[in-house]
Nucleic acid binder design. Sequence first.
DNA 1: TTTCGATGTGTACACTTGTTCACTAATGTG
DNA 2: CACATTAGTGAACAAGTGTACACATCGAAA
Lengths: 193, 193
Amino acid sequence: MGAALALVGKGRHFASLGIREVTRQAGVVPTSFYRHFRNMDDLGLQLVDELGLVLRRMMREARANVLQSDKLIEESVGIFVAHAQANRSFFLFMAQGLAGESRAVQEGIRSEMRYFASELANDLRRLRLMDHLTDADLDLTCDLVVRTVAFSLTDLLSVSPDDDYQLGQIRKRTSRFLQMIFVGAGHWQSDGT
Amino acid sequence: MGAALALVGKGRHFASLGIREVTRQAGVVPTSFYRHFRNMDDLGLQLVDELGLVLRRMMREARANVLQSDKLIEESVGIFVAHAQANRSFFLFMAQGLAGESRAVQEGIRSEMRYFASELANDLRRLRLMDHLTDADLDLTCDLVVRTVAFSLTDLLSVSPDDDYQLGQIRKRTSRFLQMIFVGAGHWQSDGT
DNA sequence: TTTCGATGTGTACACTTGTTCACTAATGTG
DNA sequence: CACATTAGTGAACAAGTGTACACATCGAAA
């Protein structure tokens, strides 16, 4: 799994990786692959599981740091960007998987995003922000937020990991997106604007 | 190019296609490939160019039909979904390319999206909607709109092309997203919040 | 009608690929 | 200690891969 991630991190697309290639990168003979996975799709699925852990770690850190801040959004986006940097290959894999060729991986990643969105909704409910929204509309908002952040992965991962200026731009732009969404949610009348 | 698209339409990922595979699908001998393209990346780039034409056609149709409607958003989303259905493989290719393995294709698709966003901004300016926004903030809004619609491709293309119920759900959800964004833009003060 | 440029063909070569099978080394449990 | 499980090995095979080169076909311009 580490080898596959490493190749993805080097710019390859997961769908184009082969068994031999992965085992070569892992410094192991091709047949060893079958001790752990049935095929590449299987490997992909297990990567999705690990991705879930990474996302949960990120969420925990966000919850710990964000509450005491008055700039919820900037702080959260900052943490997201930091994690995306620290786990570049994982997030690259995630971005690829959304339109990947394995239906199962695709569904796995979507499901992680749904979970993330629902946790976000819970947090907002707990903080009594957006109290005027129905549950359905709060879910809608959180889904949109998560999508927007996820899309920013494609920006994030296409710039050099140490181009601090561009990174800052992306952080700022993503924060503005979220601000605009929350302004919209703040003025949203739950019965058709 | 048609053969490559056909394979993508069948669920394959563009990054995993090989020259021989494509020529086989095209009913032509492998060496013929080199009469038209230097390699697969080259083919990808030419596909992006054609994708540009498809998008422009869509934009034209949207402009023709949307002006006389009071439901700008629903109408536009409807046209988008219809085109995505009619050119499934093209849009599949677009969704894949955003996180694809060819940097050039990636940049090409982004650039199409930028163009699309800027045209949208022009239209909104011409219609004198969102007149209170600075140019920069209008661009921001349109970028967010285009991203949101683009992301909905991953929903759209993962359901069966003739599951009308799901299709309707996606159309409705995407419309709500855009409504929320425009409510946000409508209440946006161009100097912070 | 000849000539030319674009497209397609057939053969060939050196690799790479997924998967199989029987075998060996390491690991931790009774 | 012995034993069972797990992980890794090496050789083998049929099939597929990218690419090179010389040759054939065809439509249009001369």
